[in-house]
Computed example of a mutant assay.
Amino acid sequence: MVSDQASRRNSVKQLRCRECGRLRDFEPAYVCGHCFGPLEVAYDLAAVGQRVSRESIAKGPNTIWRYRELLPAPTGEPIDLGTGFTPLVKAPNLGKVLGLDHLYLKNDTLNPTGSFKDRNVAVATNFARSYGFDTLSCSSTGNLAGSVAAYAARAGLRALVFIPAGLEPGKVGAASAYGATVVEVNGTYDDVNRLCVELADLYGWAIVNVN
């Protein structure tokens, strides 16, 4: 894939391994090439501090994209289903049990597909499209499948969802409704995830994993 370097936010520096700390270029990758640890985004916090303020965030849309300066997403109009800006609900009874006077719960069931995973998938979809991927893939037992399928449909991408065989139909019904290809795999979730990763590497798919 040829990356669209000009489309990246200049607040993103590199990718950092959470296990060994090694840095690598910001590019499509999901594990460290040295120790196979998970990767996270390394930001230029000085650059972020010069551009971002409470006021600038408050002027943004009522979605996850009001925080786009803090996300590894390309510039331009994002692929958006209205994810984010879900309400905080005060939980006084639970707060009493935990000894907390001001406890609030984030109600992410009000995201487009009813799951917090819409947040991760929103960013991943925009990232994948900016790098020229035409397919989103994932291994899932339910919520991630629906989110990937919904965002792929909005972006005009193909969606491939791998699930353990015998999963209740209700858990993947949304993925099918959004037009994803659902592949049942005999084995555990780890087996499903391993197969998805291997095929994504082989065929050049973008893979979305929220674990």
Rank of each mutant, 00 (worst) to 15 (best):
T141S: 12
A58E: 11
E19S: 14
W205K: 08
A175V: 04
V41D: 05
D191S: 11
K96R: 13
T125S: 02
R16Q: 15
A177S: 12
G170K: 07
S139N: 09
H102P: 00
A122Q: 05
V192S: 00
V121W: 02
R194K: 15
T125Q: 00
L105I: 14
Y43M: 05
P169T: 03
D108E: 15
A58F: 04
A149R: 00
C138M: 05
T113W: 02
L157M: 15
A29F: 12
G170W: 10
A174I: 11
S3Y: 08
G82L: 06
E168S: 15
C32Y: 07
D108F: 05
N143E: 05
R8T: 06
E184A: 14
Q14V: 01
P61T: 09
A6P: 00
R9M: 12
P164G: 01
S7N: 10
Y30K: 05
C20F: 11
E184C: 07
E168L: 13
P164I: 08
N10K: 15
L110S: 03
S176G: 11
G60C: 13
A128Q: 07
L39A: 05
F26K: 01
F116L: 09
F127S: 01
V48R: 07
N10G: 11
T63L: 06
N107D: 15
L88M: 14
R129D: 01
G82Q: 04
A6D: 12
P112A: 10
